[in-house]
Design a protein around this nucleic acid. Structure first.
Lengths: 185, 185
DNA sequence: ATACAATATAAGACTTAGCATATATAGGAA
DNA sequence: TTCCTATATATGCTAAGTCTTATATTGTAT
């Protein structure tokens, strides 16, 4: 359901095609909710079936017609209700932690390499975050009012805070292993 | 694929039935990888097809026969290779952040309530973490060597660190809104 | 007396997401 | 010349996970 509301959120700013939305996703919320092109198109159909969006066909030559989706009053009401409701928490899922849970099978040297590698990945993701804000390209004007921009930055802050805490966690483990705090096999 | 390796990891400690595994999951790695009962049974079948586990049927009266799964040499090799490989990162997905991204639609008062509610959820999850370690019940002896226990605690530390950083994030936003740093609608 | 929990496995239906591929044309790069 | 990219939508297939229900008995709680 999350994708439905993400799309409704953007349609609430401005009417868009599936193609537009894919590019908007990739330059804005991709860092916490990547979306597949086919998934976006299917979800737009569903929004229309639900009466939350309406499709306007704009004919083109040489290319498929553009299908511009507009949010409806019902869609706007649904969005506001969802935004007002509780955070949609969902179950936590971290595949890397599965690897860590069973990592006692590895040698101490392999473990140091593993956590150093993990720290390196976190640093790389942090470096990526630095390049995210303010590249909405042609959609810039339609979306980024100061208030909207504020909340965009909050989602980035959250990602950065989490990555930093993961980085510190990994680094502290390397320290502990080097200091002999890891029980032997 | 993650579930396959989680199950292989436990079978590497000791042979288990699907029923056992469900209870072990719920009392150990549930906080970062919850698993459905039907999913566990299906995955055990797949492990057997792959030659990574073997099933031993233990007849019972009045109840379905127990099917105890043993890891094979091939399964152990596969597990070790996976553990030695890179962290299986996977795409980040956070439905709550979608809500935050579009939350500028809400009033300032509603926003303070939202972030305070978010902080309360984080505190509740942190309180839950305190009660996780050392309740493996009847499976305690088979699994928790000091080294295994060390890595279990590391996964808990990671969850706690992330929840704390989310909590601080939410609290700092409440502060900022109260101090008038939120652009008006 | 009746309902619920524990023991044990299984399959069907459904949702979400991901990957590949198809269609069709124009323009720029190698 | 050939290949890649941009524009624009759509479908088929698969994987992973969730929810529900089925079967069958014993013991415990209300």
């Amino acid at each position: 359901m999350s994708l439905e509301y993400a799309i409704l959120g953007f349609l609430n700013y401005h009417p868009y095609t599936g193609y537009d939305l894919k590019k908007i996703f990739d330059t804005s919320i991709r860092h916490f909710w990547p979306a597949d092109q086919s998934q976006i198109y299917r979800t737009l159909s569903r929004l229309t079936e639900n009466g939350w969006a309406e499709m306007e066909k704009i004919p083109q030559e040489d290319r498929p017609d553009r299908k511009v989706y507009h949010i409806t009053d019902a869609g706007r009401a649904e969005l506001m209700q969802w935004l007002s409701g509780p955070p949609p928490m969902g179950e936590p899922r971290s595949a890397p932690l599965i690897q860590i849970f069973f990592a006692g099978q590895l040698s101490d040297e392999a473990l140091i390499a593993k956590f150093e590698g993990f720290a390196a990945i976190m640093r790389a993701i942090l470096a990526q975050y630095d390049q995210i804000p303010g590249q909405l390209g042609p959609y810039q004007d339609e979306i980024t009012s100061p208030r909207e921009h504020f909340f965009w930055l909050l989602t980035l802050e959250n990602g950065i805070a989490n990555m930093r805490s993961n980085l510190e966690w990994a680094e502290s483990i390397v320290e502990r292993i080097k200091n002999g705090h890891l029980p032997p096999q």
